[in-house]
């Protein structure tokens, strides 16, 4: 089980960085929202909101990689 947690944990860390990169690229290129006003507002709200979420995902992945959630489950 620890190996599964480690593999998934590492994938979440990598996924967090790639997801944020592609989200920013897509939003800034205007692919996601066509209307210019909506696009600007969408970017202005989604980018700052998504950054802490992706940091959270990377952190979650790191904790999973270290086996912290196995310890937590044993404790509960």
């Amino acid at each position: 089980m620890l190996l599964v947690h480690k593999i998934l944990g590492l994938s979440f860390v990598v996924m967090a960085f790639f997801a944020e990169y592609f989200l920013i690229v897509y939003i800034l290129s205007g692919t996601l929202v066509k209307d210019p006003a909506s696009n600007q507002i969408f970017a202005a709200t989604v980018i700052p909101v998504s950054i802490p979420i992706m940091v959270g995902l990377a952190l979650f992945g790191w904790y999973a990689f270290k086996g912290e959630y196995l310890k937590l489950r044993d404790k509960r």
Partner: peptide
Amino acid sequence: PTLATLAALATFAAGFLVRP
């Protein structure tokens, strides 16, 4: 355009940004 920006802000920002 200013009103369009405000309208989009009312939709996006209040709908999800402010709740957390």
